[in-house]
């Protein structure tokens, strides 16, 4: 199964990005083959609608689960149209989150914020 994690850098020991739509990269990790791939988030510099485009990128990567600290409502709306499962990531690196996920320690993301809509962190 492939999982996606928004990251700050394109390494496994990178921290998880605090923003989904404005993350630098998405780590696409295959839990069976242990293969990893970093996809650049081309939505990150958008003036608006970054979450929408980022969600499209993650879905197109064929990931079946997303691990993220938070999610805006537009991104959530796009992801809802796919069969993506969304988990709340934990503080720490991408690698630590993969371990937590495979160990069944992550819970589903409960709430969605209303979105920063161009006022987000850069």
């Amino acid at each position: 199964m492939k999982i996606a994690i928004p990251t700050v850098k394109n390494t496994l020991n990178s921290n998880v990005s605090s923003s989904f739509g404005r993350a630098e990269y998405f780590l696409i990790y295959d839990t069976e083959t242990k293969e990893n791939l970093f996809v650049e988030n081309t939505a990150k510099d958008s003036r608006g609608g970054a979450g929408i485009k980022a969600a499209q990128i993650v879905i197109d990567s064929k990931a079946e689960a997303l691990l993220t600290p938070r999610l805006g409502e537009n991104a959530a709306e796009v992801l809802k149209s796919s069969d993506m499962k969304i988990y709340k990531s934990i503080e720490g690196t991408a690698e630590e989150n993969i371990e937590a996920f495979t160990g069944g320690k992550l819970s589903l993301l409960g709430e969605v914020h209303e979105g920063l809509h161009g006022r987000g962190l850069k």
Binding site: G48, G49, I52, K53, A55, Q56, I59, V78, S81, S82
Partner: peptide, 22 residues
């Protein structure tokens, strides 16, 4: 259309989704 939209108001997942407020 999704690629064209500079405001990211469109997404395509199974079908085209329009974000009217964007």
């Amino acid at each position: 259309c999704v690629d064209f939209c500079k405001f990211n108001a469109l997404a395509y997942i199974k079908e085209l989704i329009v974000f009217e407020e964007v």
